[in-house]
Simulated assay, not measured.
Amino acid sequence: MAEKTFRGRVVVGGAVSAKALVSHGGFNTLASYQQPLILKNVKAPCSDQNNPDLYKKPLQGAAICLPQTIGSTTGGMVLMCACDMGAGPACMLFSKPIDPIAAAGAILSKNWTEHPFVVVDQLGDEFLDYVHDGMDVSVTEDGTVTITG
């Protein structure tokens, strides 16, 4: 099994392992978590039909690998609500610097829910080119991300 390591900046620390779920476009938090929140179903899949990489794939407990989030200013609150109900990701791993919307959601989730998620940013374009859906992702407290698969 091939293994590659990347190092990024820790935004919300923690150690976690999960399966990769990759979006090469922006991640619209409101559109993606709309069904889980409306249906109150933690296992409801991504509902953003404008994101072909993630549409209809399960977000709960995934290592969401992405360039950045996009969309409404409610995005931070949406992430927090998804985490509060247990539908959030295990981690969000950004190839670019984290945007304010995702940063707000990560910080709110860490401070106000029992289900925070780990966040590492600035992993680089090579990271997003290398990782694919279903690969094993491990994140350490210091922002080291190891991809296996």
Results as ranks from 00 to 15, higher is better:
residue 10 V to S: 02
residue 18 A to Y: 00
residue 116 P to T: 10
residue 89 P to E: 03
residue 61 G to M: 00
residue 142 D to G: 03
residue 93 L to V: 12
residue 18 A to T: 01
residue 53 D to R: 10
residue 71 G to Q: 08
residue 87 A to N: 06
residue 106 A to Q: 06
residue 81 C to S: 12
residue 16 V to T: 08
residue 83 C to L: 00
residue 30 L to W: 05
residue 131 V to T: 15
residue 112 W to N: 13
residue 49 Q to I: 14
residue 24 H to A: 12
residue 97 P to A: 15
residue 71 G to K: 04
residue 108 L to E: 05
residue 123 L to M: 11
residue 59 L to C: 00
residue 36 P to N: 04
residue 126 E to V: 13
residue 16 V to K: 04
residue 7 R to K: 14
residue 131 V to E: 12
residue 35 Q to C: 01
residue 40 K to T: 12
residue 10 V to G: 00
residue 32 S to K: 00
residue 114 E to R: 15
residue 48 D to R: 12
residue 61 G to R: 01
residue 1 M to P: 10
residue 35 Q to K: 13
residue 93 L to N: 07
residue 109 S to G: 08
residue 108 L to K: 11
residue 60 Q to V: 05
residue 36 P to C: 05
residue 24 H to T: 14
residue 49 Q to E: 14
residue 44 A to F: 08
residue 100 P to K: 11
residue 75 G to F: 04
residue 5 T to C: 09
residue 21 L to V: 07
residue 63 A to S: 00
residue 147 I to H: 04
residue 26 G to N: 08
residue 22 V to L: 12
residue 86 G to Q: 13
residue 74 T to H: 10
residue 104 A to L: 14
residue 51 N to E: 07
residue 82 A to R: 01
residue 88 G to C: 05
residue 38 I to C: 03
residue 72 S to G: 04
residue 146 T to Q: 11
residue 10 V to E: 02
residue 85 M to E: 09
residue 20 A to S: 10
residue 130 Y to N: 14
residue 58 P to E: 12
residue 55 Y to R: 10
residue 88 G to L: 00
residue 118 V to N: 02
residue 120 V to T: 06
residue 134 G to M: 07
residue 107 I to C: 07
residue 111 N to E: 15
residue 82 A to D: 03
residue 125 D to C: 05
residue 87 A to Q: 04
residue 130 Y to F: 15
residue 108 L to I: 09
residue 148 T to K: 15
residue 146 T to M: 08
residue 34 Q to P: 00
residue 72 S to E: 02
residue 28 N to S: 12
residue 91 C to V: 06
residue 84 D to G: 13
residue 47 S to E: 05
residue 107 I to R: 12
residue 143 G to N: 07
residue 146 T to F: 10
residue 8 G to V: 04
residue 144 T to Y: 09
residue 144 T to C: 09
residue 62 A to R: 01
residue 116 P to C: 06
residue 99 D to R: 07
residue 129 D to N: 15
residue 80 M to S: 01
residue 94 F to Y: 13
residue 59 L to F: 00
residue 20 A to L: 11
residue 66 L to K: 07
residue 74 T to E: 11
residue 93 L to K: 06
residue 7 R to F: 08
